[in-house]
Simulated scan of single mutants.
Amino acid sequence: MFVKIYQYHIKENKVDEYLSIQDKVSKIYCKYIDFHTMYFNSKNDDTKWLEITRYKDEEEYNKSIKIINEQEEIQDLFKGFQSLLLTDKSEISEEDFIERQEKRNF
């Protein structure tokens, strides 16, 4: 399993718009790749969000994301997403993870 984790800050009064954009993005993604995304809002900072998306593997992700990023609608939605970011905290952090299976001897 391959996992992408993003962290960013959304303006407090733009949460509904943010979730609407994420819904539209998901509808495009599902045409090209099998994935599961969860969104988390910090209990301590209403503007802080964590997005965790799981994919089958990194190869599948890399192959599909190239096609997805060529979609004009995705580009427009990303611009809309960027407009929702807090100006003083507009950085999007991104990390990649892979699942490691624990070896057990019974």
Rank of each mutant, 00 (worst) to 15 (best):
I92N: 00
M38Q: 14
K27R: 15
Q22E: 13
S20M: 01
T47G: 04
H36A: 13
Q75R: 10
M38W: 13
S83Y: 04
L86I: 14
R104T: 04
I67A: 06
T53Q: 06
S93I: 11
H9K: 06
Y61I: 06
I67C: 03
S42P: 03
I98Y: 04
L86V: 15
Q7M: 08
K27W: 04
K11T: 05
H9G: 12
N13C: 06
F78E: 15
F35N: 12
F35Q: 10
K27A: 02
I28V: 13
F97Y: 13
L86C: 14
S83F: 08
S64C: 12
L85W: 00
E70K: 09
K103G: 07
D16R: 10
F40N: 01
R54S: 06
F81K: 04
I52H: 03
N62C: 08
I68P: 11
Q101W: 05
V25C: 05
N62R: 14
S42L: 01
E73G: 02
K24T: 05
R104W: 00
E17A: 15
D57K: 04
E51S: 14
K4I: 07
L85G: 02
I21E: 07
E58D: 10
S90D: 04
E99S: 14
K4R: 12
Y18M: 02
N44D: 10
D88K: 10
K24L: 02
T53Y: 07
K56T: 14
K14P: 10
K14Y: 08
L50F: 07
K27L: 01
H36W: 01
R100A: 05
I10G: 03
D45V: 02
S42G: 01
Y18N: 06
E72N: 05
